[in-house]
Amino acid sequence: MLIGKKSDIASSEITPKSLWLDRRRFLTGAAALGIGVAFPRQNANAATLKFTKSPLSTKGEVLTPLKDVTGYNNFYEFGTDKSDTAAYAGAMKTRPWTVEISGEVKKPMTLGIEDILKLAPIEERIYRHRCVEAWSMVVPWNGFSLSALINRVEPTSKAKFVEFTSLADSKTMPGLLFPYVDWPYREGLRMDEAMHPLTTLAVGLYGETLENQNGAPLRLVVPWKYGFKGAKSIVRIRFLEHQPATAWNTANPSEFGFYSNVNPEVDHPRWTQAKERRIGDFFRRPTLMFNGYGDQVASFYRGMDLRTFF
């Protein structure tokens, strides 16, 4: 017999409607609490890419598992925790997407992502990816040389540098509230660096279009430079006569140089760059000069003091 027991569930234990409706916020909250939640692939425009294998791929490296490539990301527009960037980045809208190309070019233009995907045949390019924080991955990117896009807009003789600007949308990017860098995120390359075949405009990885946290729908990959040089979610490309002000370099010029070539001999002022931890490994391994791409790019910097131009 039941005697006067009002309810099994106290009203305080019933989840408010607003909370259970907002699944995403729950998931990110759970992530903030360190509760393991398997994030589904959130790429609304996920598509399998057709590609050929590039001769520029790095050989003899073990690929970093997809879950680490898509689950361990620095994308400060979505916060500074590498492990939950994926949860926040899902809010970014990557369609429609246009890239404005301007500056010292004969044919300034605005290209839709669909046009960019058709600029050149998509390849698979396996590159080492070395973060300035002294960890590294090996990523099978999908994309093509940036030079394909550059040739299309025909830079003038005045074009000495290229500036890349990332999306800064305060509606979907909570990190913009914090002045980690002077938003929007900007990066830059010297013209010869930008034209180098290794310099890649990536639209996918592991054979699928990029996840938002990896910089969807298109990003830069410069394998011989620290990862932050690879601007994500690019909305503007400008050709300039002078070296552009770039995000990290402006935020902290003594710590992050414009060149930021991977260099085990030039330490970050606060930590060593001599070694790195490959994601998946327990122990550190020596970092390679120019991230192992010295044969292809060292000539760019001959005669330059890499301690001054770090």
Partner: peptide, 9 residues
């Protein structure tokens, strides 16, 4: 195996 991509870190 739930320490994330960089367990040591």
């Amino acid at each position: 195996g739930d320490l994330g991509a960089d367990p040591v870190e």
